[in-house]
Computed example of a mutant assay.
Amino acid sequence: MLEAAIINMKAFGRVAVCGIISEYTDAEKRASPNMLNIVYKRITIRGFLTADFMNIFFDFSAKTSDYVRNGQLQVIEDK
């Protein structure tokens, strides 16, 4: 999926990366995007942990809840 996303990204695109569960359980499964596309398109890939943003969690939660209630944000659930 990451390789397909990178191929279709615009120059100076950004990718948020959180979690690598497949690598927790199988060290042989490694993500392998085409690094030349990342360089040529100047794409930024930045990892983060949810703990990095806990200082804004309550504000985010309140605003997001309002958006969902007002129909400004649609929730899609996949079963």
Score class of each variant (00 low, 15 high):
residue 1 M to A: 12
residue 2 L to W: 05
residue 2 L to M: 14
residue 3 E to F: 02
residue 4 A to Q: 12
residue 4 A to H: 10
residue 4 A to V: 13
residue 4 A to L: 12
residue 4 A to F: 11
residue 5 A to I: 07
residue 5 A to F: 13
residue 6 I to H: 01
residue 7 I to E: 15
residue 7 I to F: 13
residue 8 N to P: 03
residue 8 N to Y: 09
residue 8 N to Q: 13
residue 8 N to C: 07
residue 9 M to N: 08
residue 10 K to Q: 13
residue 10 K to S: 11
residue 12 F to S: 11
residue 12 F to E: 14
residue 13 G to P: 00
residue 14 R to N: 14
residue 15 V to G: 04
residue 15 V to T: 08
residue 16 A to I: 10
residue 16 A to P: 11
residue 16 A to W: 03
residue 18 C to T: 00
residue 19 G to R: 05
residue 19 G to E: 05
residue 21 I to K: 00
residue 21 I to F: 02
residue 21 I to G: 00
residue 21 I to N: 04
residue 21 I to E: 11
residue 22 S to D: 08
residue 22 S to K: 07
residue 22 S to V: 11
residue 22 S to W: 03
residue 23 E to G: 11
residue 23 E to M: 06
residue 23 E to Q: 13
residue 24 Y to A: 06
residue 26 D to V: 10
residue 27 A to V: 04
residue 27 A to W: 03
residue 28 E to V: 01
residue 29 K to D: 09
residue 29 K to M: 14
residue 30 R to T: 11
residue 30 R to N: 14
residue 31 A to Q: 09
residue 32 S to V: 05
residue 33 P to N: 08
residue 33 P to K: 02
residue 34 N to A: 12
residue 34 N to D: 14
residue 35 M to A: 09
residue 35 M to E: 02
residue 36 L to F: 12
residue 37 N to K: 15
residue 38 I to H: 03
residue 40 Y to P: 00
residue 42 R to W: 02
residue 43 I to E: 04
residue 43 I to H: 06
residue 44 T to Y: 07
residue 44 T to G: 03
residue 45 I to W: 06
residue 46 R to S: 11
residue 46 R to M: 12
residue 46 R to E: 15
residue 47 G to H: 06
residue 48 F to H: 10
residue 48 F to Y: 15
residue 49 L to K: 01
residue 50 T to Y: 11
residue 51 A to G: 07
residue 51 A to N: 10
residue 51 A to W: 13
residue 52 D to R: 01
residue 52 D to E: 14
residue 53 F to I: 09
residue 53 F to V: 04
residue 54 M to W: 05
residue 54 M to T: 10
residue 54 M to E: 15
residue 55 N to Q: 12
residue 55 N to A: 11
residue 56 I to F: 03
residue 56 I to H: 10
residue 56 I to Q: 14
residue 56 I to C: 10
residue 59 D to R: 05
residue 59 D to P: 00
residue 59 D to F: 01
residue 60 F to Y: 08
residue 60 F to R: 02
residue 60 F to A: 05
residue 60 F to N: 04
residue 61 S to M: 04
residue 62 A to F: 06
residue 62 A to W: 07
residue 63 K to E: 02
residue 63 K to V: 05
residue 63 K to Y: 01
residue 64 T to Y: 06
residue 64 T to K: 06
residue 64 T to H: 02
residue 65 S to P: 00
residue 65 S to C: 05
residue 66 D to P: 00
residue 66 D to R: 03
residue 66 D to Y: 00
residue 66 D to S: 09
residue 67 Y to G: 05
residue 67 Y to P: 01
residue 68 V to C: 03
residue 69 R to A: 14
residue 69 R to D: 08
residue 69 R to I: 10
residue 69 R to F: 04
residue 69 R to Q: 11
residue 70 N to M: 13
residue 70 N to F: 04
residue 71 G to D: 07
residue 72 Q to Y: 13
residue 72 Q to V: 04
residue 73 L to T: 01
residue 73 L to R: 04
residue 74 Q to W: 00
residue 75 V to W: 02
residue 75 V to T: 06
residue 75 V to E: 15
residue 77 E to D: 05
residue 78 D to S: 13
residue 78 D to M: 14
residue 79 K to E: 12
